[in-house]
Amino acid sequence: MPSRDGEPLLAARGLRRSFGRVRVLRDVDLTLAAGDVLAVAGPNGAGKSTLLRVLAGLSRPSAGEVRVEGRRLAGDPEARRAIGLLSHHSLLYDDLTLLENLAFAARLYGSPHPAETARAALAAAGLSDRAGDQPRRLSRGLLQRAAIARALLHGPRVLLLDEPFTALDAAAAERLRATLAERREAGLGVLVVTHHLGEVWDVATRVAVMVGGRWAAEEPREGPLDAFLPRYREWIGA
């Protein structure tokens, strides 16, 4: 699927984010084109998760702007509709079942048949048999699968993932990699933040490194991971 009017799916220019005197993002520029799977790595405290929150519109940048398919993200509900986010939290309510949680999310995204949309998302995540369970009854891995299902529920054109492989078993991790590959082939965009590049190396099209809130390096993903790791260590100063 080509991006709207030839605009990149996601573009950030001059992003800065500070919390008091602490500068977490420093002039970050990035572009996510159709078919991109951009893997972002970096040490703890590099600003990766904050970057995802800013790109998702959950945190207002101190400077700079985010555009989704050419639309300014700030204050534009249609731009938000294009984004799916998997964060450190599942975004699910403990007092609702998985089906109710996902049906509620589907309603927020204007699905005409929220229950059917929710069932389809749960089936895709292999969670049909747990549809009536509340999140508090799920293991960490099952909860992560439910959170991924929620992020994918509305068919976002831009998918932002923060450590998506956390707690997934081998089969679920493979299913997620297949999903990312499908999105790449369909011309959709994915930005994956990870500490373990090996988990996404095969499906990524580009890899970037963040250090101290800066976009320290970015290059196409080529060759084996082992050949990239020495450069990565050099960039992060390890």
Binding site: P77, I83, H89, G110, R150
Partner: peptide
């Protein structure tokens, strides 16, 4: 407080809801 559990409020704010 119900929105605080599992960061559920982020799910509300992410959605294209005025």
């Amino acid at each position: 407080t119900v929105e605080r559990e599992h960061g559920a409020i982020d799910g509300l704010l992410l959605a294209p809801v005025p």
